[in-house]
Amino acid sequence: MSTVSPLALFGGQPLFERPLTTGQLANRDPERFFELASASLERRRLTNQGPLVDELEQRLCELHGTRHCVAFANACFAIILALRNLARPNARKVILPSLTFRGLPHLIRWAGYEPQFCDVDPLTHTLAPGELARLIDADTAAVLAVENINGLCDIDALERLTLDAGIPLLVDAVYGIGGRYTDTLRDNRVGARGNASVFSLHATKLINGFEGGYLTTDDDELAAQLQRQRSFGFGDAAIPVELGMNAKLNELHAAMALSNLDHMHAIINDNKRRFACYQRHFQDLSWLSFADYSQSPGTYGLVLLKVGTHAPYSRDELIRILRAENALVRPYYSPPLHQLEPGSPALPVTESISRQYIQMPVGDLLVEADIERLAQLFKRLEQDAVLLGTPLESVPQ
């Protein structure tokens, strides 16, 4: 009789006592955060464009090589307001990849437009320029490109297409921070291309500000509009001069972001080390591989594990097994956005990618021993495949 304990899915104890998450959750310098936060409390200046937000915006301008950085309470507000200011009048569609964050169509609709989904490049998982060119027409209000963790956009091709058509290009660069484009016509830093780029300071992202976001641009008029609109549309005399909202970043979130910004490169190096651990411990599992990161921004903030067609378990079965073991993995952008919209045409590359990948645990709370135990679990599953068969469909969800 086997002495191996059963999988948690079948009543055993979970492999991990502490949940393994898929976010960065970096908190590298809490003493610096408390120092900055205490100074803010002493000044009684907690919001309304305080000195910490000013400092953060300036440092992010330097990081991305842009004239302006406008901080927001979160990246969602930045995208909504940017679209409202940039989109072509008398047009109603915003083109975006279907393989992306499922909240983006909501933001497009909040801005007053309709999403139109585009297929992606099979290597980078970003907007495919040829497919984008096919979709652009007189009803295209804007293009919302999205940088991916394993690949950056073909920014030169996207800029050529949108400039030729007179259409604004907004880049959701949440996973592109710190990256550089190749074979470009001008500044190759992510954040310095298109009409504007948006980044997140959410706790799960590379720069943790608890919450928050920011937009970078060289457009003086756009920056001035956004600075007013994030603060109720107030002009210099604190009188509304245009439609606005309360989308300001507060000083405590800026303090957290500043305390982690100094450690960004150290966080990236640790991500690289963890990714190398994944590659080393999983190298003997022939039915598993990792996404191609050759065109990535190099931050390795997500680890995308590819389940081969000859795998003894389906991708979704593996996710169920792992989550029961307290490894809180998730399917990578699955289902894709267009499949949630009735009547959307098929996007074959997107649909194929969305069936293949598991978003694995990452971040500061993950240690090499955790990665080794994950690999051992997969090796056990490989060994037990013949014995177990595929009984998972009979187990309650």
Rank of each mutant, 00 (worst) to 15 (best):
T184A: 13
F117Q: 03
D219H: 10
E147Y: 06
L161R: 05
L144Q: 04
I149N: 07
F210V: 13
V198T: 02
F117W: 03
G213V: 05
R193V: 12
T204S: 13
T162N: 08
Y181N: 08
D172S: 10
Y175P: 04
A133K: 12
E114H: 11
I108S: 13
H125D: 06
Y175I: 01
W110C: 01
A157C: 03
N188V: 05
G194H: 10
A173T: 07
L135W: 06
R186E: 14
A128E: 00
L170S: 04
R109Q: 14
G112L: 14
T126Y: 08
T126C: 15
R160W: 00
A128D: 15
T184R: 12
G130H: 09
P115E: 05
R180N: 11
I167E: 09
E131A: 15
L132D: 06
T124K: 13
R193E: 11
H125N: 00
D156S: 12
G166M: 05
D172N: 15
G209C: 06
L206Q: 07
E114G: 04
P129Q: 00
A128L: 09
N195T: 08
T182W: 14
A133Y: 06
G176I: 10
S197F: 11
A173N: 08
E147N: 12
G178N: 02
D164K: 10
I177H: 11
G178A: 05
D183H: 13
I167G: 02
P122Y: 12
